[in-house]
């Protein structure tokens, strides 16, 4: 057990926690923006898969992972506009349409990958985004390496938490936005263009979830393969519930899931005797238990999940 207390182990574990929490956090925030406008989006896995592909392809072609992230955002928006059209315009059941996106988007991603690289087994490799240490702060022993030696996407994702908090809690546009998810008819009668807010929400959600996917292929692993997302979209969905639809809560939830993932990876490196499959279960089992113990109270936006028809009384 001594190894748990050794400084390098702890440092590596915490560093890895932040790294693994990032995709969960950004995608969970994506879901928050969507749900605050009354759209429950369970298609996050699909959006991430498409973002991962777009990010990988562009970063591979240009050699620039930043352009990859941008492509991931655009790809995510594209996919989520399909969802937006289906649920806002056609009033499709959000859960059902989200599920359709989960099947549709990865199929498109897989198709594009095969068109670009053929079915050859040799995996194409892209350059990974380099960490940019923050001058000064990164020199602090221990803390510097854990917190201030990451890729810019990690910093931006964590910065998004206070921004989201301030937006929803302290600004008029944020409160107006929130009212759409709570009681769209009242919002409409006070002059808010409900449908417009829903579309804006879908664009934000698509962009952030797409970045979350692109992060995986530009900053975490240098290849794309089908199933690279491996349920992270659903774990992000859990993080929103677990975090009680509050940015701060979501941050804690994402850190928790990042920690379980990091722990699992560390164990795999250290302990070659335990079958990796049992270790790889840790994040999923933790998600289950997190839900069982903390997921009871329903605290989400009141009108989340319901279709909205302007003309309907």
């Amino acid at each position: 057990m001594d190894i748990f207390l050794s400084l390098p182990f702890l440092q590596e574990l915490l560093l890895s926690t932040l790294r693994m929490a990032t995709p969960i956090l950004i995608v969970a925030l994506a879901e928050l923006y969507s749900e605050r406008a009354g759209l429950v989006n369970i298609g996050l896995d699909g959006i991430m898969a498409f973002g991962a592909l777009a990010g990988f392809l562009v970063s591979y072609q240009t050699g620039n992972p930043y352009l990859g992230i941008l492509a991931g955002a655009l790809g995510g928006i594209l996919v989520n506009l399909v969802y937006a059209f289906g649920t806002i315009q056609l009033g499709a059941q959000q859960i059902v349409f989200g599920m359709a996106i989960n099947i549709f988007a990865p199929a498109i991603a897989s198709f594009i990958y095969k068109m670009a690289f053929g079915s050859s087994s040799s995996l194409a490799q892209a350059t990974l985004m380099a960490a940019i240490p923050i001058p000064g702060l990164s020199r602090i022993p221990f803390i510097g390496d854990v917190f201030f030696n990451h890729t810019p996407i990690v910093y931006l994702t964590f910065l998004l938490v206070p921004i989201t908090y301030v937006f929803f809690a302290k600004t008029i546009p944020g409160l107006n936005y929130k009212s759409v998810g709570e009681y769209p008819k009242a919002a409409e009668s006070s002059g808010i263009h409900v449908v417009m807010v829903k579309y804006k929400a879908s664009i934000i959600c698509g962009a952030l979830a797409g970045i979350g996917g692109a992060y995986l292929t530009t900053s975490y692993i240098s290849t794309y393969s089908d199933g690279v997302v491996s349920g992270r979209g659903f774990i992000a969905l859990t993080a929103v519930i677990f975090g009680r639809w509050m940015p701060g809560g979501i941050l804690l939830a994402a850190l928790f899931f990042g920690f379980t993932d990091a722990l699992q990876l560390r164990f795999q490196v250290m302990n070659s005797k335990t079958p990796y499959q049992l270790l790889a279960m840790i994040p999923y089992i933790s998600t289950l238990f997190a839900l069982i113990f903390f997921g009871i109270k329903k605290a989400g936006p009141a009108s989340s999940g319901k279709p909205y028809f302007r003309e309907e009384r």
Binding site: I42, F234, L237, T238, I241, Y284, T287, L291, I296, K298
Partner: peptide
């Protein structure tokens, strides 16, 4: 009252 979708995916 847990979300059955998330539980079943996990």
């Amino acid at each position: 009252g847990l979300n059955e979708m998330i539980v079943s995916i996990m």
